[in-house]
């Protein structure tokens, strides 16, 4: 596949919820294309029958007991919020979707 053609920067910006300035876009497009072109050397590798590796050291059933800890001062976890009211975090109006 030809990465330069397949990179839809605007679509990526929507998925990543990230606005880029026109200058940033101009720079980023070719850079991404080059990096993607570079990583495409993986196409050379035969991975038939190879399991994907999701964890560096695989384990299973890392589970915790269903025990509730006592509640602490909630304010300390809200203190970093840029805006809050009545112990809730304020965001600009959100259209239900």
């Amino acid at each position: 596949m030809n990465p330069e053609q397949s990179i839809d920067l605007d679509r990526l910006c929507v998925l990543a919820r990230l606005s880029l300035t026109p200058e940033e876009k101009e720079k980023l497009g070719p850079q991404l294309a080059r990096i993607i072109g570079y990583v495409e050397q993986l196409n050379e590798v035969d991975v038939d029958g190879i399991e994907p590796m999701a964890h560096a050291i695989p384990m299973e059933n890392v589970l915790r007991k269903d025990e509730a800890t006592p509640l602490v001062d909630r304010e300390k976890y809200l203190k970093n919020a840029p805006a809050s009211r009545a112990s809730q975090v304020v965001v600009p109006p959100v259209i239900e979707g």
């Binding site: 990583v39 993986l42 196409n43 590798v45 991975v47 190879i50 399991e51 994907p52 590796m53 999701a54």
Partner: peptide
């Protein structure tokens, strides 16, 4: 693909 090459 990258996960598989990681195995290798």
């Amino acid at each position: 693909k990258a996960q598989k090459v990681r195995s290798l």
